[in-house]
Design a protein around this nucleic acid. Structure first.
Length: 415
DNA sequence: AGACAGTATT
């Protein structure tokens, strides 16, 4: 798309001199559209016509590169910026720190944060939130809470993002009571939780088996006029299904269009799984077809759910045909799909086929967990393939998949 | 003119 450069030239011809702001705005727009090459072209053109990029220009490019996972390019730009004598500001640092956090490079992110302090820039909520989020993602909740306490010690009033991040972090660590305290404190301080926060907490309540609390929160959302999103419905439908409240889940699902929302693949998958696990495989298949009829493209999770549902209902052939369709769609099987299929095949006594899939997954660098390995081993023993079982057991021990201390020949109710 | 937060499958 060379239109942007033409556009700039046209502006010039009309005597409307594009300035640094014009160029920076265009660069940022192309970055946000994911058209990096185009953004870079404008960046180079800007330099060519003698305009100097400033902190805004660089920040847009650094942020876009971070979000695209090109950390090295982002760091290169930061260095270039420094060499050009343009100082980074809090927004530049936040973009870079967040990029490093998203990439799991916490030591580098901490280094960036130190640089902020050393430069004399006072950190604001956004950069604290980015850092807190990084720690949570790295499963270092203790560090996240230290920052949280530090912020509150400084007398900052946490904003919605920070409250939301902390609540999400505590939920992800199954620290529901603490999460609840922060949630109450938030409301007490006059902040109104948004749909992100309500959805996070409701989902956590459902996952912890606290159905009543989850439903109370749902009511609170309705009372406070909080917007429902597709994700809210997804968490709600999944939670209801897992509690066996299938009809309730269906009702919410069917009422989504009433408020202008259409179920996406994730919502269908939650409901399909719910039907499978509540003994309604036929209805699950109908839902899957309904999804196809709507022109939606099932993802790995959707296919895996249908495969697993069929296996658990004794339909091995149908499960294998779904697997075939999945592969024909050009999808690689993942840990979930392999686990389900290997379990199913061994359950039906097809241990050779299960072994083929096991080798295939290991070949791709996807490692089965110990439970799956033991499940397959026990089936070998049970079917009387003792030599093969022993061989497989040795192989699994050598690959570090099992510890090898159990007596797998002992029949087990689960196999 | 630029930065930070949530969901479904074994």
């Amino acid at each position: 798309m060379p239109e942007a450069l033409n556009f700039l030239r046209e502006m010039n011809n009309k005597g409307l001199k594009p300035n640094v702001i014009t160029y920076s705005t265009l660069i940022d727009a192309f970055c946000k559209e994911g058209m990096m090459q185009e953004a870079v072209k404008i960046f180079m053109d800007m330099k060519r016509v003698g305009l100097s990029p400033n902190e805004f220009t660089y920040t847009s490019l650094i942020d876009a590169n971070c979000k695209a996972g090109n950390l090295s390019e982002a760091l290169k730009l930061k260095k270039e910026m420094f060499q050009e004598g343009i100082s980074s500001n809090i927004v530049t640092y936040t973009a870079l720190l967040d990029g490093l956090c998203q990439d799991g490079r916490m030591e580098d992110a901490e280094e960036v944060f130190r640089e902020v302090l050393e430069t004399g820039i006072s950190p604001n909520q956004q950069i604290f939130t980015a850092l807190v989020h990084g720690y949570i993602k790295a499963k270092r909740m203790e560090n996240a809470m230290e920052i949280w306490k530090e912020i509150k010690g400084k007398g900052f009033k946490p904003d919605l993002s920070l409250y939301g991040t902390i609540i999400w972090g505590l939920c992800s660590q199954n620290k529901l009571e603490e999460s609840e305290l922060v949630f109450s404190e938030m409301k007490g301080c006059g902040s109104t939780p948004n749909h992100f926060i309500y959805t996070t907490l409701m989902d956590a309540y459902f996952k912890a088996g606290k159905t009543k609390e989850a439903l109370n929160l749902l009511q609170e959302m309705l009372d406070n006029g909080i917007e429902f999103t597709v994700v809210t419905y997804c968490a709600l439908i999944d939670g209801l299904c897992k509690k066996g409240l299938l009809q309730e889940a269906i009702n919410y699902f069917r009422r989504m269009p009433d408020i202008g929302l259409e179920p996406n693949v994730a919502v269908f998958t939650a409901l399909i799984d719910g039907h499978c696990k509540n003994n309604c495989i036929e209805a699950a298949k109908e839902l899957f077809n309904e999804m196809l009829d709507k022109g939606m493209i099932p993802d790995k999770a959707a296919y895996t759910t249908l495969i697993d549902g069929n296996l658990k209902h004794g339909n091995l052939q149908e499960a294998l045909s779904v697997e075939k369709r999945m592969r024909e769609m050009g999808m690689e099987l993942d840990l979930y799909a392999y686990t389900s299929l290997i379990w199913g095949l061994s359950h039906f006594g097809q241990v050779q086929q299960a072994k083929i899939l096991l080798d295939e997954m290991i070949g791709k660098g996807i490692l089965p967990d110990e439970i799956l390995c033991i499940c397959l081993l026990r089936k070998y023993y049970k079917l009387g393939y003792l030599d093969e079982a022993f061989e497989l057991q040795t192989e699994m021990v050598n690959k570090g998949l099992i510890t090898g201390t159990c007596d797998y020949a002992v029949p087990n109710a689960r196999t």
